[in-house]
Amino acid sequence: MIRWLRWLLLLIVVRPIARFLTGADVTGREHLPLKGPAIIAANHNSHVDTLLMLSIFPSKAVMRVRPAAASDYFLKDPVVGWFSRNLVGIVPVARDRVASGEDVLAPAREALAAGDIIVVFPEGTRGDASDEMSRLKSGVARLAEAFPEAPVTPVWIQGAGRVLPKGEVIPVPMNCAVLIGEPLHWNGRRSEFMDGLRDALLTLKDQAPPLRWS
């Protein structure tokens, strides 16, 4: 029941809102995975990134799309938590418990095992809307290692930080370019894999329209 509610919400509420706010100017749509297990790795400047990622998949695949999100941020408040878990469909990542040695990627691996498409933001947190990419965290490599059959699709989102920068509350419609690259596959070495992902993201960034924002 709630799964269908989520599907309807994504198609008739989230998708029009995302189009209205961003124009969702997608290139490379043919590279999107349509079934899981699959991993999407995108840069992160705004909550709008999640909105966009939930709205660019065809309606057949959208049920499977689940953004990985920090449980220390989204699951703090019970109402936001219920909403995030059931309607946005987040896969919680307990960033605050990494130091304790707990396996914070367990929920993401479960979702991949169930055939979901996980969206990860390897920068770990939102950047400041300038188009710099910060250092990538290697959790995505560990997921790829655990599921070597899952393609890792790099996605560069240009301009979402202007629609809703970190710290702002009111979104302002501005076009965002979403550039989807060719999927990468696990190659056996974490550092090499991460370098490949970084290069792929930066290549997509070079193809994006210039961002005149200061």
Binding site: G23, A129, G159, R162, P165, E168, I170, V172, P173, M174, N175, P209, R212, W213, S214
Partner: peptide
């Protein structure tokens, strides 16, 4: 207008004017 304002140089302080 959204296309134009997205391509033209804008600044964080201008968000209100864009709205």
């Amino acid at each position: 207008l959204r296309e134009f304002l997205s391509l033209a140089p804008t600044r964080r302080e201008d968000r209100l004017i864009v709205l």
